[in-house]
Computed example of a mutant assay.
Amino acid sequence: MSLLDFSIVPEAAAVRAAATRLRSFMSPSRLVRSDALSDQLGIEVLFKLELENPTGSFKVRGAYNVLAGLSPEERARGVVASSAGNHGLGVAYAAKAFGTPAMLYVPRTAPQVKKDGIRALGTLVNDEQPDYDAAMVVAKAHAAREGIRFINPCLGLDLLAGQGTVALELLDQCPAMQTVVICTGGGGLLGGMGSVLRQLAPGVRVVGVQSVETAAMTHSVRAGRVIDTVVTPTLADGLAGQIDADALHIGQRCADDLVLVSEEELGETIAWLHRTTGMAVEGAGAVTVAALRHGHIDAATGPLVALVSGRNIDPSTLDLLTTRFPA
């Protein structure tokens, strides 16, 4: 616990306060057993269904906690954010709940289902930038110009405190949990959950999962310094983008291991999840299950909990994958 920098990751008290705020806004997400993976791995495997949250991912937790912590005057001036899609949906949903004007910058390659969902919530969307990192640069400039709050998709104590409420729920739902597997991009969920678990349940093993095309965190942690990666097309668009020194701290201090899955493994897993459970899971939310299905995580004992977060996959992509990877 002493290795955590509490200027970057939240203390447990802040996460508990976020959980209190969220209690009137949304219910805890369900924890369900995966019979297929439990049988395959020989341990108890559970899915934390963050894709059943409002907007379809964990991102709404942090966004709501940020908006809840602003003054009425700050909320009236509005907020701006950059996003690959799900953070934008979370900000749009929370902004609507508070009656706050919001502007979202997303890459032009963001799935149409996410852009349409953000606009449907009454938020303005700019999708002129070529990738996630360029969208963030423009969003930050907008916030500075207008003097309004920029809501970072992966960093900020109030944002991470909201994401950390997932870990608090798990400690209630599965106190015997031995391992938790977390979808990892810029480190928001890993930082929020990992900080809570390091403080309250240090015996729980924390494993972050990325795709080979979204591996900025993994490459940086392995190198011991921030490594820029090439932005390439990926099914896990929600995990794409570079990281900075704060995110590197999260990867180094909040994860016991970081593993990568291939695009092929990820596509097969999305099709498998849809075929066997009926769930439509986007790539960023399916990386955890892909890592388990394809043997990238060695877990001798359970229970093991895998986060499944993100249902916002374009129907055409899902159809393509289910055709390509039949039973």
Results as ranks from 00 to 15, higher is better:
Ala135Leu: 08
Leu124Pro: 01
Thr100Arg: 00
Ala36Trp: 03
Leu121Ser: 14
Asn53His: 11
Gln129Asn: 10
Gly42Lys: 10
Ser57Ile: 10
Ala36Ser: 03
Thr55Asn: 12
Ser38Thr: 14
Gly122Trp: 12
Gln129Met: 15
Glu128Ala: 11
Ala92Glu: 03
Leu37Cys: 03
Tyr93Gly: 01
Ser38Asn: 09
Ala36His: 04
Val125Phe: 09
Pro54Phe: 06
Leu51Lys: 06
Ser57His: 14
Gly78Thr: 02
Gly117Trp: 13
Ala134Trp: 01
Gly42Ala: 13
Thr123Glu: 11
Asp127Met: 10
Asn65Met: 05
Arg108Val: 12
Ala76Tyr: 00
Glu128Ile: 14
Ala63Cys: 08
Glu52Asp: 09
Tyr132Glu: 10
Ser57Ala: 15
Ala36Tyr: 04
His87Gln: 07
Ile43Ala: 12
Thr123Tyr: 10
Leu46Asn: 03
Pro54Leu: 14
Val79Glu: 00
Ala120Leu: 13
Leu67Ile: 01
Ala110Cys: 08
Ser57Asp: 09
Asn126Phe: 13
Val79Asp: 00
Val106Met: 15
Ala84Leu: 10
Ala134Ser: 11
Tyr64Ser: 04
Ala76Gly: 01
Lys114Gly: 10
Phe98Cys: 00
Asn65His: 04
Asp131Arg: 14
Gly90Asn: 12
Gln112Pro: 00
Glu44Asp: 11
Gln112Glu: 05
Ala84Ser: 13
Phe47Tyr: 11
Arg75Cys: 01
Asn86Met: 08
Thr109Asp: 06
Thr100Asn: 00
Lys96Cys: 04
Gly122Thr: 05
Ala94Trp: 02
Gly85Val: 09
Gly78Gln: 02
Gly122Gln: 15
Ala110Thr: 15
Ser82Arg: 04
Pro130Glu: 13
Asp35Pro: 03
Glu74Ile: 00
Asn65Cys: 08
Ile118Leu: 11
Gly56Val: 12
Asp116Met: 10
Asp127Trp: 09
Tyr93Arg: 12
Pro101Phe: 03
Arg77Val: 01
Gly69Phe: 03
Ile118Ser: 03
Phe58Ile: 13
Ser38Arg: 08
Leu41Phe: 05
Val137Ala: 09
Asp116Trp: 10
Lys48Asn: 09
Ala63Gly: 08
Lys59Trp: 04
Ala36Thr: 10
Ala36Asn: 01
Val113Trp: 06
Asp39Ile: 09
Tyr93Phe: 12
Phe58Gln: 03
Ser71Val: 08
Gln112Ser: 12
Leu51Arg: 08
Ser34Ala: 09
Leu124Thr: 14
Arg75Gly: 00
Gly88Val: 08
Pro111Thr: 07
Pro107His: 15
Val91Thr: 01
Asn53Phe: 14
Lys96Glu: 08
Ala68Ser: 12
Glu73Phe: 02
Ala84Met: 10
Ala102Ser: 06
Leu37Trp: 04
Gly78Leu: 05
